[in-house]
Structures are given as structure tokens and as C-alpha cells.
Amino acid sequence: MSAQLIYDLVPLGAIIQFSDGTPRPPERHRKRLAAWEHRNSGGRLIQKQAERRVGNTVIAATITLHVGDYGGGGVVVLRVHRTFSVDSDLRFVVTERPRIGAVRVLSRPGNDAELLSLASSHADAEAWLQSHGYPDAVLDEVTTDAPAADVMEGRTAA
């Protein structure tokens, strides 16, 4: 599926894999492998940003994936996000949708909100919010209103 379909149909919190369709190079080709891994990976969908205009320039809509966290001893030192334009030539696949009943902690109300955490229950989301302190955060329960992406890929909604 395209990045545009991810933007249009897939809910925040879904796990997305992206690929350019090329085969993985052998381990011994470190530079080629690193370049391949840059275009063939995955992450959790944390933000959808609408098209916007800056002066005379139009910036296309984007999707952002949380690829990973790096650190040690329970301390995150570096959080890695990847942002893709809806015009991206990569192919995207939804590998996991947020569980119905899970609660998304969003950075603010509105369409450009960023997913901060995906909790299994409302109580867990409240506890996460108390310990992390985002003053404008909102809680959003995952419902059954978004099976369209699974139908687009020829699967039944889980």
C-alpha cells in the first residue's frame, strides 16, 4: 500500500513495515546493507501531518513512524523517528493494528497530534500520563471504526 493510503486509512498506533522491494544484500556488504536497511524497516505510526503551505511552498502531507529508542539502564537517550511524504516511492504494509479497547495518549487534541503512548487500558494511560506530565495530552480509545486498511489489502479486519 502507498504512504497516501497509510495516511488516509491507518489509525495511529499501527505497526507499519516499509520496503523498496529490493532483495537484502549479504551481511559482508556492510555499506550496501546499511543503505538497504535505511529503506527497508518498520515502526509504529505516531503522527499524520496534513499538507501545509509555507509562503509560496506547499509541503506534502506526511506520516511519521517511531522506529526505535536507544539508551541503557531504563533511560532513553535517543528516540528515532522516520517521516515519509505521502508521495514516497516506498511500499508500506500494516503488520499490526492497535487492539480494540487500547487507549492512545496523544500530545494534543486535533488532527496533527502525535502518539505519545499506546496503553492497554484507560487506567494504564492515566498512570503513564501522571508519570510523564504532558499538560495538553488527550486520551483516545481505539474503536472498531477503522477496518478500511485491512479491506484495501484484501484481508479481513482483525
Rank of each mutant, 00 (worst) to 15 (best):
Met1Gly: 10
Ser2Asn: 14
Ser2Thr: 14
Leu5Tyr: 10
Ile6Val: 11
Ile6Leu: 10
Asp8Arg: 09
Val10Met: 11
Val10Glu: 00
Pro11Cys: 11
Pro11Lys: 10
Leu12Trp: 09
Ile15Pro: 00
Ile16Pro: 09
Ser19Asn: 11
Ser19Thr: 13
Asp20Val: 06
Gly21His: 09
Thr22Asp: 06
Arg24Phe: 07
Pro25Ile: 04
Glu27Pro: 12
Arg28Phe: 02
His29Ala: 08
Leu33Met: 11
His38Glu: 03
His38Gln: 10
Arg39Phe: 00
Asn40Ala: 02
Asn40Cys: 03
Asn40Tyr: 04
Ser41Lys: 14
Ile46Asn: 02
Ile46Met: 11
Gln47Asn: 04
Gln47Tyr: 02
Lys48Gln: 02
Lys48Leu: 01
Lys48Gly: 00
Gln49Gly: 04
Glu51Pro: 00
Arg53Val: 06
Arg53His: 03
Asn56Gln: 12
Asn56Glu: 10
Thr57Pro: 02
Ile59Tyr: 06
Ala60Ser: 06
Ala60Ile: 00
Ala61Trp: 05
Ala61Pro: 01
Ala61Gln: 05
Thr64Ser: 10
Val67Arg: 12
Tyr70Thr: 01
Tyr70Glu: 00
Gly72Met: 15
Gly72Glu: 15
Gly72Ala: 15
Gly72Cys: 15
Val75Cys: 03
Leu78His: 12
Leu78Cys: 08
Leu78Ser: 12
Arg79Thr: 15
Arg79Pro: 03
Arg82Ala: 01
Thr83Cys: 08
Ser85Glu: 00
Ser85Gln: 07
Ser85Tyr: 07
Ser88Phe: 05
Ser88Met: 06
Leu90Tyr: 05
Leu90Asp: 03
Arg91Lys: 14
Arg91Asp: 02
Arg91Val: 09
Arg91Met: 08
Phe92Glu: 03
Glu96Ala: 06
Pro98Arg: 05
Gly101His: 09
Gly101Gln: 04
Ala102Trp: 09
Arg104Glu: 01
Leu106Glu: 00
Arg108Gly: 01
Pro109Tyr: 08
Pro109Glu: 09
Gly110His: 09
Asp112Asn: 15
Leu115Pro: 00
Leu116Ile: 12
Ser117Val: 13
Ser117Met: 13
Ser117Gly: 13
Leu118Arg: 07
Leu118Asn: 08
Ala119Tyr: 14
Ala119Arg: 15
Ser121Leu: 02
Ser121Ala: 04
Ala123Lys: 13
Ala125Val: 12
Ala125Trp: 11
Glu126Met: 15
Glu126Trp: 01
Trp128Glu: 12
Ser131Trp: 11
His132Asp: 13
Tyr134Gln: 07
Pro135Val: 04
Ala137Asn: 05
Leu139Gln: 07
Leu139Trp: 08
Asp140Tyr: 13
Thr144Gly: 05
Ala146His: 10
Pro147Asp: 02
Pro147Ile: 00
Ala148Asp: 08
Asp150Thr: 00
Glu153Val: 08
Arg155Lys: 03
Thr156Phe: 03
Thr156Gln: 04
